[in-house]
């Protein structure tokens, strides 16, 4: 499956704004909404990407593989789940740190076009087969 890089960048920008708002308001529900967005982006399609498609018609000049950004959405989901657990338990510091980590990745993607989650894809692929080999031994 292919992805539109413009839509991904737009999604990262919206994610940045949402996560900034979460840090300013410390709102559990806003972070929960972002977690749902990450979950949809991981298993199906990101609502932000669909919003971009609705606003900007026409095909992109170049497309990219959808697997790494999908994987990156999963990484974002993992951080937001930690953040939600922190807010729910009333332990704010880890919640803020987890939200900040997700914000950092989204901001780098939106502002510089670097996809931290995508780069982790190769790093984790490096680790996975080794892990499998250990299991099979």
């Amino acid at each position: 499956m292919r992805a539109d890089p413009r839509a991904l960048r737009f999604g990262a920008a919206v994610t940045t704004l949402v996560l900034l708002s979460v840090l300013l308001t410390e709102s559990f529900w806003l972070l929960a909404a972002q977690a749902v967005v990450f979950a949809l982006g991981t298993i199906w399609r990101s609502p932000y990407v669909m919003l971009f498609k609705a606003l900007v018609p026409g095909a992109p000049k170049e497309t990219e593989d959808a697997r790494p950004p999908r994987f990156a959405q999963g990484v974002g989901l993992a951080f937001t789940v930690v953040g939600l657990a922190g807010f729910a338990a009333g332990i704010t510091p880890p919640a803020l740190v987890a939200t900040a980590a997700a914000l950092l990745a989204a901001f780098l993607n939106a502002a510089f076009g670097f996809c931290l989650g995508c780069e982790m894809y190769l790093l984790i692929r490096r680790l996975l087969p080794a892990a499998n080999m250990e299991v099979s031994k």
């Binding site: 900034l20 979460v22 840090l23 300013l24 308001t25 410390e26 704010t92 803020l96 740190v97 939200t99 900040a100 914000l103 950092l104 901001f107 780098l108 502002a111």
Partner: peptide, 13 residues
Amino acid sequence: TGLWVALATLALG
């Protein structure tokens, strides 16, 4: 605290 965390994160980014 959230404001400072936000500013620090953007600066680091």
